[in-house]
Design a protein around this nucleic acid. Structure first.
Length: 264
DNA sequence: ATGGCATATCCTATATGA
């Protein structure tokens, strides 16, 4: 295993966010970056700008909504999957997977699911079930695997400033949390929670009510490691400074640092 | 119960996000 930094970042519009994205890549230099919510068709993906910044990329876009990409520093991701199996009729661009720097990287944007109850929440849970089913083989793989992205799930009340005003939100529903727990129970390591078992750490602060200024956040962006990869987990964190920049995304990049040798 | 803000597109209005 190479010493690697892997990050996930919901950019909320890659064209509107390109200056912020490039500034972050320049400063933090992640080896691998999973992006969500491109909100861009494939032909408008800023491949030249990213290449000039030293990043190879693959992407799966869509007009207006969704869209995921995998970036690799001084390398080209080798695509292994586009879209989750289990529903040929699902047209959303929410899953992309590639081999990069010796790691199999799944980049996902799980459906938000609001309002609930309703068809959008049903779609969220159905998508989650497909992910759980597919993730089983990745979990048991002897190759290192990371499943990184915007899961749109607040796993526990430790992962939110105050659950009260979010109790009816799809991100906190028992069904959503139960799906996330079932995924973890396959044997995945929730990186940030593993490194910081008791701390309140957030990856998202909505644009309303000065939630960033008050640090009223949610932890919904996660990097899950399979047993072949988790022994190399060295450090994890959130690049919160990105959320403080002008015209910021409502998410901040979340990352892990992998050691070059086993630590546990 | 609503709206606060931000991004997208079929752009002075509407859908979506979380």
């Amino acid at each position: 295993m190479k010493k690697l930094r892997i990050a996930t970042f919901n950019v909320n519009g890659i064209r509107a966010r390109l200056p912020n994205l490039l500034a972050w890549l320049e400063r933090e230099k992640p080896d691998i970056a999973c992006l969500q919510e491109l909100k861009s068709v494939d032909s408008a993906f800023p491949v030249a700008e990213l290449e000039a910044a030293g990043y190879g990329a693959i992407w799966h876009g869509q007009a207006s909504w969704n869209g995921v990409a995998i970036l690799a520093r001084e390398a080209q991701p080798l695509e292994s999957r586009r879209g989750l199996p289990g529903d040929e009729g699902d047209s959303h661009s929410r899953y992309l997977e590639a081999a990069v720097h010796g790691v199999l990287v799944g980049c996902l944007y799980l459906p938000n699911g609001n309002p609930q109850p309703g068809p959008k929440f049903d779609y969220k849970l159905a998508w989650f079930e497909r992910l759980i089913r597919y993730a089983e083989s990745l979990q048991s793989s002897e190759h290192p695997v990371v499943l990184a992205g915007d899961y749109n799930v607040v796993p526990t009340d430790l992962d939110i400033y105050n659950p009260r005003s979010w109790l009816k939100d799809a991100l906190l529903q028992p069904e959503s949390r139960e799906c996330y727990q079932r995924l973890l129970d396959q044997g995945w390591t929730d990186s940030l929670r593993h490194v910081y078992p008791h701390d309140r750490l957030y990856t998202f602060w909505d644009y309303f009510r000065q939630h960033w200024q008050k640090n009223s956040g949610l932890r919904i962006d996660h990097l899950l490691l399979n047993p072949a990869l988790s022994p190399y987990l060295q450090e994890a964190g959130v690049d919160a400074w990105v959320r403080n920049e002008p015209r910021a995304s409502d998410h901040a990049p979340t990352w892990i640092q992998l050691s070059s040798r086993k630590l546990r």
